[in-house]
């Protein structure tokens, strides 16, 4: 499992490369991502553009990672695909995470 991590001025940009966050990989996904974010002193921006599918175990992993973040550091989810966005919306977790388009310049307002 791979994450592409880039330290930019304002935040830590983490790109998820897994196409599916499901029951088959939820636990290693959670452990690996948590390892990356707990050391960060900046807010995390997670690029989710490559993730085509996420189920409730994947959602549980995302919530666990968010809970492990140091105090006052936010977690921004960028570029959710429709299948992933649906899970956040239906479970009302879109109110817990900061969900945004990939870049502020490229806004896709509905």
């Amino acid at each position: 499992m791979q994450f592409i991590v880039e330290d930019v001025v304002t935040h830590l940009a983490v790109k998820v490369t897994e196409p599916r966050i499901d029951a088959a990989i939820a636990t290693p996904f959670k452990d690996k991502l948590r390892e990356i974010v707990v050391k960060s002193r900046k807010p995390i921006h997670l690029d989710m553009a490559s993730v085509d599918f996420m189920d409730s175990s994947g959602l549980g992993a995302m919530i666990a990672v968010r809970k492990s973040l140091p105090q006052n550091l936010g977690m921004v989810l960028c570029a959710l695909t429709p299948n992933v966005e649906r899970v956040f919306r239906l479970t009302r977790m879109d109110s817990v995470f900061d969900i945004r388009p990939l870049t502020a310049q490229k806004e896709h307002r509905e």
């Binding site: 409730s56 919530i63 809970k67």
Partner: peptide, 23 residues
């Protein structure tokens, strides 16, 4: 219904059957 949304202690599970019933 959905598991209670407590911001300090977010639920990490209990969503599966909610999603099944909802969809």
């Amino acid at each position: 219904s959905l598991p209670a949304l407590v911001m300090d202690d977010l639920p990490e599970g209990g969503f599966g059957w909610f999603l099944i019933q909802d969809l």
